[in-house]
Amino acid sequence: MALDQSFVGRSYPPTAPYEVGREKIREFAEAIGDTNPAYTDRAAAEALGHPDVIAPPTFVFAITFRAARQVTEDPQLGLDYSRVVHGDQKFAYTRPVRAGDRLTVTSTIESVRSMAGNDILDVRGEVHDESGEHVVTAHTKLVARGAEEEQPASQTGEA
């Protein structure tokens, strides 16, 4: 079922603050195998001009994606999340996320389209710190694959 176009532009209330912990950053850096000292050593981060250890560029996705649940689980939107795959991801940074940040996310539906039986949803997550300064914007494209029985025969193939 095609998603309702009237949802384009809808914004959801800012999330409760997420406090970025230095040990959480360390855990994430270790999980991706990245030994850059800017993630774990405050002196090394300061030498690069940062006030504290910073997070790897994609760390913030865990926060913005959690916030996007407001959208994907909005019963009025009616997205079938069991069919959703991640299409595109983009980040635009004002500054890196760092330890001690208390970040809120405001999610907005940027576009809703139907293509070849799939629903394509673009969600923008604006991330701000405690003082209201912009930190990063995450653009997430989600694709809800159409149910097979709803697709024209030419789309289903033999598989």
Binding site: P56, K90, F91, A92, R95
Partner: peptide, 8 residues
């Protein structure tokens, strides 16, 4: 890593 301005 703070030198990354955009990444997609």
């Amino acid at each position: 890593p703070g030198a990354v301005v955009e990444y997609g």
